[in-house]
Design a protein around this nucleic acid. Sequence first.
DNA 1: GCCAAATCGTCAAGGCCTTAACGATCTCGG
DNA 2: CCGAGATCGTTAAGGCCTTGACGATTTGGC
Lengths: 158, 158
Amino acid sequence: MDRFEETATARLEELGGIDRPAFAASFNLFRLATQYLGHLEAVVHRPHGLSTAGFRVLFTVWVYDELEPRQIARLSGVSTAAVSGVLGTLEAKDLVDKRRDPADRRLVQVRLTSAGEELVTSAYRMQNADEQHVFADLEPDELAAFTDTLRTMLERLS
Amino acid sequence: MDRFEETATARLEELGGIDRPAFAASFNLFRLATQYLGHLEAVVHRPHGLSTAGFRVLFTVWVYDELEPRQIARLSGVSTAAVSGVLGTLEAKDLVDKRRDPADRRLVQVRLTSAGEELVTSAYRMQNADEQHVFADLEPDELAAFTDTLRTMLERLS
DNA sequence: GCCAAATCGTCAAGGCCTTAACGATCTCGG
DNA sequence: CCGAGATCGTTAAGGCCTTGACGATTTGGC
């Protein structure tokens, strides 16, 4: 426990009526995610000319080959409006193609261009090398348990 | 493991050369953080008239009673420029006071107003109730191990 | 058939994040 | 004692996120 968490815990103790284990888990979850996301953005995504959001959308489409904006939004956990904006940026860089579904003209189908596919695989290889390095301190059992808890929580939220 | 993770894992297997445990941990960490942060913003922060960023800054200052922008930025894991903007918004709502340090006029000292203090404690009580509910499925041992792993990773990153 | 309701994607307004450049202020070596 | 360099906070430009409103399109009950 670092000094920030210690100080916050003491302050919450004065406040009273707080569930400490739940605070500790949530507090550190958000700190870790913020820190690590910032790190990846600086060392992986921006050097590839992408934002974190752009990378996530690109990666999601790459996994499924073809997706509609609504599905990208659901899988990425953001609003469809946000996806619409990010797709505009990615399309301007010729990393994705959008086309209207002829059968239902409300729908849009998104695919990667070959440039988009090359970029996302290159970026993800670099990200995974970083992930490998960052998680290297943990025992395999501890890492597996950590991932299982994350999955449990995700299921609980959805 | 849900369908998205399964599909992504299969796609990465085709790609080759990927550390699967590191992918699984990182992938689910970011998904959980994004989902839960969005949930808290919708049910706790916005109803209190705050953004997530505004709440985090307010909470950080509340823990320490008084802080300088640079320290808020380091503790929150964002840039000083971002903190400057958020403080402007919070000050416009009369939730924080800023004053120049007379001894070193480059420095700014930030404190909560009484309205800011009431708002942040009310918002955090509601957030903690939600955290308690969301983590209630986990055994105390599993939750403690999860939090410990988060702390280990945070230390590794800083 | 046809109009009301549902659905999809986009736009608008307000706020936040990044890096880079900048003015103001302080420190310290010559 | 004074100018070069360091440090602090702010601003600028570009991008992303939210909710809410909107036009286009499709569906379903009558």
